[in-house]
Design a protein around this nucleic acid. Structure first.
Lengths: 159, 159
DNA sequence: CTTAGTGCAAAAGATTTGCACTTGT
DNA sequence: ACAAGTGCAAATCTTTTGCACTAAG
């Protein structure tokens, strides 16, 4: 989905909900859609702050909440610390592989795993509503330099 | 592993690390090992508090950290809010299925899923260090009463 | 105009830390 | 004795909220 389209979807959601399309919301949404990684509220704030010094972190949090309600953003909690937000396009569900050394996040999907999850749930008498699968480890590059590492997550990018 | 044995393991870990076996640590560890569900620091604190009013929540947190270091406890973060701690026996790794309505937590293990995870990681050029798989949904009982529910997690037990 | 939005400061909630006092060894 | 532990209060850190002011429809 193109950025323009997403921006439009967001505006529609606002109108439908009787909310207003403000300068701040436009700017924050635009900055969010321009991202192609996972980004924290703080990091997104820094980006829009560069464009318009008057925007507050609080508004970023509030706008991200709206984006979630509009179905345009997903909030993820990897390890501890701040949440990261990613685009929630119409794409299928996916899971994440996170490098514990450099913080790189790779998305993947695997139907076989999903099927097995359903099977497990059925055996336990549960109906799955949603799930969370996160693989933590070392990416090729970080395995190569083998500089030890602490095992703690250090996100280099957006965090 | 019997409770007595775990208690002993903990004492050994303390000695090995040049730490002291205090009244508080003994009591907190005993209360933790007596648990057979997932318990929060707060809930564990309430339990030991009943036995000895003088013990502080801070000491519970510090002792849980020691138990983790001793390899006797695992810290889990389900949904948001406080962390839950579980026994880290010599048992194999397991994952969790959590009822979003009553908070029930069921453990399971599935080698096929684990194998597929390894395969995915290999294809992505990663080496897995650890993973987190959580299935959220409704248990049989909570599906039966079908009282709507908010989708938010409400843990009835220890939380 | 009238209702919603914004930004600041303050609150919240879970966990950690500084510090003076207490306790194992 | 002496290093380590404890409990309290205060600090952290991320996210949310109350409120007086501002702006969109």
């Amino acid at each position: 989905m193109a950025m323009q389209k997403k921006q439009q979807n967001f505006r529609q959601h606002l109108v439908r909900s009787g909310l207003k399309a403000t300068r701040q919301r436009e700017l924050i949404a635009r900055a969010f859609f321009a991202t192609n990684t996972h980004i924290s509220a703080e990091a997104l704030y820094r980006r829009v702050s560069g464009r318009d010094r008057r925007i507050g972190l609080v508004t970023v949090y509030r706008t991200l909440k709206l984006l979630k309600e509009a179905g345009l953003a997903h909030e993820r909690q990897f390890g501890e610390g701040r949440a990261l937000f990613e685009h929630a396009s119409s794409e299928r569900h996916h899971d994440h592989m996170i490098c514990t050394h450099c913080g790189k996040i790779v998305e993947f999907e695997n139907c076989e795993i999903e099927a097995l999850q359903e099977e497990v749930a059925r055996k336990l008498g549960f109906t799955i509503q949603y799930h969370k699968l996160e693989l933590y480890g070392r990416c090729k590059e970080c395995r190569a330099d083998a500089s030890g590492g602490t095992g703690r997550i250090r996100v280099v990018g957006a965090r």
